[in-house]
Amino acid sequence: MALTWSRKRMSVRFKNRILVFGGRAMPKVTDAHLEARRQQILDAATECFARKGFHRSTMHDICQMAELSPGAVYRYFQSKDEIIEAMEEQGRQHSAAVIDAVTSERTETLDVLEGLVDVFFSKLEDVRDCAVHIELWAEALSNPKIKQTVVRIDESIRNAFIQRIVSAAQHRGEINAALDPDAVARVMMAFWDGLVLQKTLDPEVDIWKYVAVMKAMIGGTFWQKTEAGRS
């Protein structure tokens, strides 16, 4: 056996075979590649949770759905709990970005609320996403770690809603200042939470008819006076 050294590589000659231990530097893995792989795993987990539920889905199922080896998946996430935390954080970032974008483009509170409704409720057309939300909420009831994550993310989104929209609108006199800002935010967010459940149970629910009713309620056109003499 002979060793061959060079500045660029080291090889071992053994029984007429050369095993190369070095050579050209391995290509650097870009941040974009790492993020794409991470998203690939999250998408696979979402599909698994929607099809089989959180408890029946295993890390092995997620590996198969992602078409990745266990080693590749565990490099990013050590457990399903970590995957859920990543999903929730991704949802928080998306919600914050939507609130920033809509409040930057619109000034009147009613326009802002209608813009937020259009964006957030459009996501509910995907029944799979609705089912995953139900799974996460159910898991939060029995898993303290997941509950802490869900509550923290929900609180973060609610606080952003209060600070960027509710409090400012109350200061301008557009929303009743006597109402508790946190309660206002919770009720508005409950519209979305409620439809998630309804859409999961009945996929035929028409999202946009629901949106029309919600806009009528927040815009003041829900109640209509009857004509004189009309029963």
Rank of each mutant, 00 (worst) to 15 (best):
C48L: 02
F49Y: 15
R51A: 14
K52L: 10
F54V: 01
H55K: 13
H55L: 12
H55D: 01
M59W: 04
M59A: 13
D61M: 08
D61T: 07
C63M: 04
C63L: 03
A66T: 05
E67P: 00
G71L: 09
V73K: 01
R75P: 01
F77Y: 13
F77M: 02
Q78Y: 04
Q78W: 04
K80Y: 03
K80D: 10
K80T: 04
D81V: 07
D81E: 15
I84D: 02
E85R: 12
E85C: 10
A86S: 12
E88Y: 13
Q90V: 06
G91N: 06
R92I: 08
H94M: 14
A96C: 09
A97N: 08
V102Q: 10
T109Q: 00
T109Y: 08
D111H: 11
L116V: 13
V117Q: 03
F121P: 04
S122T: 05
K123G: 10
K123L: 08
L124R: 05
D126P: 01
D126W: 03
D126S: 10
V127Y: 05
R128E: 07
R128Q: 14
C130P: 11
C130R: 02
A131R: 14
H133P: 00
E135N: 06
E135K: 00
L136P: 00
W137D: 11
W137F: 15
E139R: 12
A140Y: 01
L141P: 01
S142T: 05
I146N: 08
I146Q: 05
K147D: 11
Q148G: 15
Q148V: 00
Q148K: 13
T149G: 01
V150N: 06
V151Q: 09
R152T: 10
I153D: 08
D154P: 02
E155K: 12
E155H: 11
R158W: 08
A160F: 05
F161N: 05
F161V: 12
F161C: 10
I162V: 15
Q163Y: 01
R164G: 02
I165L: 10
S167N: 12
S167F: 04
A168G: 04
Q170C: 12
R172D: 13
R172C: 07
G173N: 09
E174D: 15
N176G: 09
A177F: 09
L179W: 11
D180L: 04
D182S: 15
